[in-house]
Every structure is written in structure tokens, then in C-alpha cells.
Amino acid sequence: MTTTARVATDRDTEDPAQSEGTLRAWAVQSMVLTGRQVLVLFRDRATVLQILVVPALTMVMFKVVLGDAIGSATGSNSAYGTVPLVILVSAMFGSIASGVRLNQERATGLLGRLYVLPINRAADLTSRLGCEVVRIVITSVLLLIAGLGIGFRFTQGPLAVLGILGVALLFGLAFSTFVLTVSVSTRPSVTLVPLLSLFSSVLMFFNSGFSPVDAYPAWLQPIVENQPMTPAIEVMRAMASGGPITANLIKVIIWTVVVVVICAVPALRGYRKAATAR
């Protein structure tokens, strides 16, 4: 084979998407691995039940058990707080399930096998976040549809639906990044579910979804008002039923940026350590 033919052959076999250090490689490989993550997720019937059916039933339960009491105390339809609350709770607990799945792949050695493949080092992590985007959008849409059955309405027009989904995505991505960071940064022997579930439960019960902020003790009100779930719930409520949006939307964006920036580097370092550990 002549030198010219050899060079031509090399050029033909080189695929920029296979060069792990390029931006194109990261994008293409992240998309492929995202597809893998989505397939793995939806083939797990227990997880699908947990992230789709359980939140919808929880929403109905909250409405039946607490709806009248909350409505009497606040003077408004409790569905406008319950539906956003359950959407965010679903995003949180779905992220915990993803973190558990990552630890299982770490224990079986799959994480290590993925790491030694000639792919971009960040592709697997971003694919997990990509899977979270798909999951959050699907569950949020289904929960919004279920919410129509308990009195939730979009009085601000169809664009409100996109706004609500956008806020759910911002909150969900921030929480997913946090969970992934914790998952890859802790020892496999550490039980993640109780720790993360406890943290999620604290956020779930101390926010404005159940009752207004001023119904909490005075010393607790600043914490409830500024914890990540409350501004997200208030923005989603305002987008559906009307009300001020800007101040709480800024809080949601700040929380998202702060969490992602703080967790990005530890997530990459922890992933490398988890994938290469023996």
C-alpha cells in the first residue's frame, strides 16, 4: 500500500465522534449513552412504578386527606400547591433511584468497563443527567394531567405548561447533580437511600406546598421561604393560577446554578475515583 493510500485509509477510518477529547465526541457519545440509560430505566418495572404511579397516587391522597383543611386555611384551591409539590418530590425521589442504580453499576464493575472505553470521560455522567431530563419531563406531564382530575387548571394559557416544565427541570437537574455527586463520592458500603430520603423528606414537609410560609413558626419562616422547593412551588403556582413570578424564579435559577457549579468538579473527580477503584 502506498503512503498516499495509507493516509487516505487512515482518514476514512478516523471518526471525529470517536476521538474522546473533542466536543463532538462528548455530544454524540452522551446522546448514545442517554439512550442506554433511558432503556435501563424503563425496563425496571419497580422503578417505573415508583416514579410514575406512586407520585400520582400520592397527589390524590394529599388532595383527599389534606385538601379541605389546606383550602380552608389558605382560602385557595390546594391543588395549586399539591401538584407542584408532588412534581418536585417525584423529581427528587427519581434522582435517588438513579443514584442507587449508579452505585449498583459501580459494584458490578460496569462503571469501570465504561470508563476504560475510548469515550469522553464526561459522557457517562452527562448521559445520566440526560436521562433525568427525559424522566422529569415525562413524569411532570403525566402528573399535570393527573392534576386536572383534582382541580388543577392552567388559567394563564398554554405557555404556562412550558414554564412549569422548565422550573421542574431546573429543580430536578440541580437535585440530580447533587445526588450523582453524593453517589460517586461515598463508599459503596454507605447506604444512600436512607440518607438522601431523609434529606428529601425534610425539604418535602417544610415548604409552601402544604401551607403558606407565614403559617410556620417565625424562626422557621426564613428557612422555609428560601429553601429550594418553596420558590419553585411558588413559581409553578403563579404560572398556573396567576401571581408574581420574577423574584421566586430568580431564586430557582440561583439555587440551580449554585448547586451545579459546586457539584460539577466533585462529581467528575468522584466518578473517576469510583470507576477506577478496585
Results as ranks from 00 to 15, higher is better:
residue 32 V to E: 12
residue 37 Q to R: 13
residue 20 E to Q: 13
residue 61 M to Q: 07
residue 69 A to P: 12
residue 33 L to F: 11
residue 122 A to Y: 06
residue 15 D to G: 11
residue 53 V to H: 06
residue 45 R to M: 12
residue 48 V to D: 05
residue 125 L to Q: 13
residue 105 E to R: 08
residue 30 S to F: 10
residue 32 V to W: 12
residue 56 A to S: 14
residue 61 M to S: 09
residue 47 T to Y: 06
residue 34 T to D: 04
residue 113 R to N: 06
residue 14 E to L: 14
residue 110 L to D: 08
residue 55 P to C: 01
residue 36 R to Y: 02
residue 64 V to A: 05
residue 42 F to V: 06
residue 60 V to G: 07
residue 83 V to R: 05
residue 14 E to K: 15
residue 73 A to I: 09
residue 71 G to F: 00
residue 33 L to C: 02
residue 72 S to A: 08
residue 95 S to K: 06
residue 19 S to E: 11
residue 40 V to G: 10
residue 115 Y to R: 13
residue 40 V to R: 14
residue 101 R to G: 07
residue 64 V to C: 06
residue 121 R to H: 08
residue 19 S to F: 15
residue 62 F to H: 04
residue 120 N to D: 04
residue 87 I to N: 01
residue 37 Q to Y: 14
residue 124 D to F: 15
residue 57 L to A: 08
residue 99 G to I: 01
residue 122 A to P: 04
residue 91 A to F: 04
residue 32 V to S: 12
residue 64 V to K: 10
residue 124 D to M: 11
residue 125 L to N: 12
residue 98 S to W: 02
residue 48 V to F: 13
residue 94 G to E: 00
residue 96 I to Y: 03
residue 33 L to M: 12
residue 88 L to N: 05
residue 31 M to V: 13
residue 57 L to G: 06
residue 91 A to M: 09
residue 20 E to W: 15
residue 13 T to C: 01
residue 31 M to C: 07
residue 23 L to H: 10
residue 82 T to R: 09
